[in-house]
Design a protein around this nucleic acid. Structure first.
Lengths: 245, 245
DNA sequence: GTTAATCAATAGGCCTGACCAATTTAATCT
DNA sequence: AGATTAAATTGGTCAGGCCTATTGATTAAC
């Protein structure tokens, strides 16, 4: 595990491999520490780029890149022609970039809640056209599973969930579901067991989706939420059993 | 020749001051749009800096600054010697910059659901230390509101909600709440009425937060969800009344 | 004396061109 | 074919220069 050194603020974007000590990140970190340390108070103007460059013995471009990193992080404000100023909210700003990828179980738990909400909302807002489309996805999924093509079936699984999310008419909700789905697919561990899981839950999945569809077509919000949550809980369960080995 | 820009967008955390058309921000926006638009998928490698510079008819330094902005924003990963790659979670984050960003009411609706879920989960998992911290935020918020400093109070409002999200021990949920909050702040319309809304709901907000806190300290999941939803619905209501004028 | 216009110093914004270091790809040699 | 090495590619940094925006002091006008 690569540790995150010392600084209170982490602007570094290091990955698994320890490398690339990019200069502008070092400078940005030093400046950020000075801010966090209270040596630079909110409202203060930083030294000029040229002075900072000389102070840290780097080029002006490197200083500029560091400052831009700080600006995007919300620590400072750059006023062209005037100077660089420390923002008032700069003190404790570290957690914004943390963003360690959520683990598989976290993803599933989030899906349970968010997709449950989405299903409930969708039940009240879904159109007949969308219901037809949903049914079509279901049919294709069923056919593919029957043909043992669980891998191809999963594509329609995704479309199914995505369509429900978009039926909420809420793009924020839709984005979140999309994001969770992407996360799930890109999760290292998830991909390892993906095939096993698909095989294991293929049958129940069809039934669960069928139930969700029924609730949606009945405009039964509470039922849709329950069905969706039951479905995701089921998948999660299978997942847990698998990684327990 | 400078090419015309048909979509005036702005990057993260910027005021609506139209006096800083810094080039690197324009380039960053265009790249972010390409990501949000799906023309650049997660994992894809962006064209080389030199190519991008030629494409957009700017210097390489400007492209570098744009890429650094995107990296700090969490949209891309820069691998020295290799290239610039689109990150998995880029789609969610980039929609902050996109023109099809969720509207204010969509954001509030999503918050109602997600933060409701978060509150319920948090009620079961929050630690005593976190409860203390929550209470501290509440006190500071109360003091600031009493002193008419509604603007400063909002900072603690954000911390309050964020802390609840993190108390769920689910980083995916936490990220989503964070994202929604960021969206809300960066929404043009929201910012316009921000001050009015703050004044209007300042008092009720304190009570609502107090109620949420009480439920959390009682480990009352259902109550916490209800209180949180009531709180957000209240803010939404005030918001709707305001834009109705 | 106060205000308004002016101007020069200073700040950041952007450009050109070059060289270095890490990585990737192609060529070469077993 | 596989391993090794060389070349091309890509990001990282430096240097110096010119531009525009801001600011404050100077000067002109009232």
């Amino acid at each position: 595990m690569t540790q995150t050194t010392d600084s209170p603020l982490k602007l570094s974007t290091e990955r698994s491999q320890a490398n690339s000590p990019r200069l502008y990140l070092l400078i940005a970190d030093k400046l950020a520490q000075n801010i966090a340390k209270g040596e630079l108070n909110p409202g203060d103007r930083l030294p000029a780029e040229r002075d900072l460059a000389q102070h840290y013995d780097v080029s002006r471009q490197t200083v500029r890149e560091a400052l831009i990193a700080l600006e995007v992080s919300g620590l400072v404000e750059i006023k062209p022609g005037s100077g660089v100023y420390v923002l008032k909210s700069a003190a404790l700003k570290s957690s914004i970039l943390a963003d360690d990828a959520p683990g598989p179980l976290e993803i599933m738990e989030a899906r349970l809640l968010v997709e449950g909400d989405a299903a409930a909302l969708a039940a009240e807002r879904i159109s007949n056209e969308e219901l037809l489309k949903l049914k079509a996805y279901l049919n294709q999924m069923t056919a593919l599973v029957a043909a043992q093509k669980t891998s191809e079936a999963e594509a329609f699984d995704g479309k199914f969930h995505q369509l429900i999310a978009s039926a909420t008419r809420n793009s924020a909700l839709q984005s979140m579901v999309e994001w969770l789905w992407t996360l799930r697919e890109s999760s290292e561990i998830s991909r390892l067991f993906a095939e096993k899981i698909r095989r294991q839950v293929a049958g129940p999945n069809i039934q669960a989706h069928e139930k969700i569809y029924q609730c949606l077509s009945r405009r039964d919000a509470a039922g849709a939420r329950a069905a969706m949550q039951e479905h995701i809980a089921q998948v999660t369960e299978a997942y847990i059993l698998l990684i327990a080995d």
